[in-house]
């Protein structure tokens, strides 16, 4: 197969990971709404129902809290359920089982059980989906002890990360992104897994570090390209893992550039950017040559109208403006 043929959509990379893990391990089952013949709201599970049947692909009624709880119970008994929450906003309906069961059981039952489940969900806005179908709620998840949270930004990442998440003995939330599903990238053929706790330097640079994840990483990379001609050399650090954070990679980049902008699609207050900023302040304040800048969504619901949405969500121009500010400090 040529490299060109292995340039696939992010959604296809997710599909391949699910397909390969279903084939590899019969304890893997899928659960979620409309993931059968419909193939999932974003087509991610297309073809899997036809291939594996109802015994492996559990199409659920619209009962998020309970089917996440069902997955917890099945995981405690040794299955490896991979649950799809159609839109990340709907996670609110299932938060109890994530917060009070999945994240706590291994610890509070003193290691007697593990909860090897994966919850996949697309976060983020795609343009016009409106207040209840557009949020990036990573900020809520990273505050839950006992849950690993990852938000891969490329097809190659999501395939290796999702496979690793399925094989991990702990509950893992994989944040996918509606804006990333139709993006393409090279994905190596065959089986591979990626670490669940490592960031990746998406593009090396020496002047300023942009730290981002999920849909904002491609935006940061585009900003890097746009500013190249004016002689600004940006480094883009893609977090991938939000819980735990890869502190060493973060600190290494900060020590290299001394100037940091953290970019995320979630709300500004109490988010991943705030946490990364606090860590940098605690551990490498001496390396900073300018105050840290956060570029994030406004602390607002996301309006439906495209004309309004852009004022709430972080834009490339906001990152460019932040670069100017941090340079002039």
């Amino acid at each position: 197969m040529t490299d060109d043929e292995r340039t696939i959509y992010y959604s296809k990379a997710v599909n391949e990971a699910l397909d390969e893990e279903l084939a590899r391990d019969d304890s893997v089952i899928l659960m979620g709404e409309d993931i059968g013949c419909y193939g999932g709201a974003f087509g991610v599970t297309k073809g899997l129902y036809e291939k594996y049947g109802a015994e492996r692909i559990w199409e659920t009624p619209i009962s998020e809290n309970s089917f996440v709880g069902v997955a917890v119970g099945a995981a405690m008994m040794g299955l490896r359920p991979v649950v799809e929450i159609m839109f990340m906003d709907f996670l609110a309906l299932a938060l109890d089982q994530l917060l009070n069961s999945a994240g706590k059981l291994h610890y509070m039952y003193n290691g007697q059980v593990t909860v090897p489940m994966v919850l996949r969900t697309p976060g983020g806005a795609k343009g016009g989906y409106g207040p209840s179908h557009s949020q990036m709620l990573s900020n809520l998840l990273v505050g839950i002890p006992g849950i690993k949270v990852v938000a891969p930004s490329t097809p190659a990442q999501v395939k290796g990360i999702l496979k690793a998440a399925i094989r991990d003995p702990n509950p893992v939330v994989v944040i996918e992104n509606k804006r990333l599903y139709p993006q393409r990238g090279y994905v190596a053929a065959g089986d591979y897994v990626l670490p669940l706790d490592k960031a990746e330097v998406a593009a090396a640079g020496k002047d300023i570090t942009l730290i981002s994840y999920s849909s904002m990483t491609p935006v940061c990379l585009a900003v890097k390209e746009a500013l190249k001609p004016v002689g600004i050399d940006l480094e883009v650090l893609d977090l991938i893992s939000l819980q735990p954070l890869d502190k060493e990679s973060i600190f290494a980049s900060v020590r290299k550039t001394g100037r940091v902008i953290i970019v995320e699609e979630a709300c500004l207050t109490g988010g991943v950017a705030a946490e990364v900023s606090a860590l940098i302040s605690e551990h490498c304040l001496d390396a900073l040559e300018a105050p840290i800048i956060r570029v994030a969504a406004a602390d607002m619901p996301i309006p439906s109208a495209l004309a309004l949405e852009k004022f709430v969500l972080p834009q490339a121009e906001d990152i460019v403006a932040a670069v100017k500010r941090i340079q002039e400090y």
Partner: peptide
Amino acid sequence: LSAIDHCFLGTNGITGGGIPIATGAALA
């Protein structure tokens, strides 16, 4: 409180929280 050796999957502090867990155990 759980005791897996006794097939006791656990008591649960959230009212109604054990019901889906039991349903998932039954699924398994």
